[in-house]
């Protein structure tokens, strides 16, 4: 459903092809266990200070995505925005960070480049773990896991209902945008363009609210009792808990070794 682009507005919708469909051990793992495991892994990796440990965490993240059966090409495409940011940060810190200059290139800061390298290694490792553990569950399954982990009642429901309506709203905007283009609308840096985009957004808002009222009425008629049910209800088995514990050990050990030797 996210395959279509929302017009020439640069929507990244195309990149949102789902990763939650699959049969890997991580796809079959209960979403609650994955949420808890990801919290442990992400906090551990974020505490890393050294480059060796950062590299080890990156390799761990790549191993985890391999275990999730996600191809490196798909993962690389998802890491492009973050790495564009890291490249910019490297240049900026290299040029502006205080400290001794690099011996080979005198106008680049050695400390700035060292910090940028550490951030890049950690950032990519964190994103890989995030993709492998959380993007292999559907959003409704994650919302249900949040509810079952007692992270509130309204927030998981809001997440599930937002995801439910996201595609409808996207289609609505696409339709209105196509109609505007058919009437000769050509986006430029002008007041007319900003007014047109604002009206398209306003119309999308009004239509989405009207549809939401109908959806709410239909849900109530079908006996909706405040719980958004999903077919992805996993069961928490002892074997999965052991698997999750085993997955949490490497990043914790990497971080402990890093902090003790830093």
């Amino acid at each position: 459903m996210f395959g279509a682009s929302l017009g020439p507005q640069g929507f990244p919708i195309r990149n949102a092809s789902p990763l939650h469909q699959g049969s890997s051990p991580l796809h079959q793992m209960d979403a609650r266990i994955k949420l808890l495991t990801s919290a442990v892994c992400l906090i551990a990796i974020s505490a890393i200070q050294g480059h060796g440990a950062g590299l080890a965490a990156l390799l761990f993240g790549m191993g985890l995505t391999r275990l999730a059966g996600v191809s490196l090409g798909r993962v690389a495409a998802r890491l492009i925005p973050a790495n564009m940011f890291f490249i910019g940060l490297t240049l900026l810190l290299g040029l502006t960070y205080p400290g001794p200059a690099l011996s080979a290139v005198s106008w680049l800061s050695q400390d700035g480049l060292t910090l940028a390298l550490r951030i890049s290694l950690k950032g990519n490792a964190l994103l890989l773990v995030f993709i492998a553990l959380l993007c292999t569950s559907s959003v409704p399954a994650l919302a249900e896991a949040m509810r079952r982990l007692r992270l509130g009642r309204k927030l998981p429901l809001l997440l599930a209902l937002t995801f439910r309506q996201l595609f409808l709203v996207a289609e609505e905007f696409q339709r209105l945008h196509r109609a505007a283009l058919a009437r000769g609308f050509a986006p430029r840096c002008s007041w007319h363009t900003y007014r047109t985009i604002a009206v398209l957004f306003g119309q999308t808002l009004l239509r989405s609210l009207a549809r939401a009222e109908r959806i709410h009425g239909a849900m109530l008629l079908r006996g909706f009792n405040g719980r958004f049910r999903t077919l992805d209800n996993g069961s928490w088995t002892a074997f999965q808990a052991v698997q999750a514990s085993a997955l949490s050990i490497p990043p914790v050990l990497i971080t402990l070794h890093d902090r003790l030797t830093w």
Partner: peptide, 13 residues
């Protein structure tokens, strides 16, 4: 909640 979710989707888009 349903209306708030609709607005969340609208602001997301």
């Amino acid at each position: 909640l349903v209306l708030a979710a609709a607005l969340a989707a609208v602001f997301f888009i």
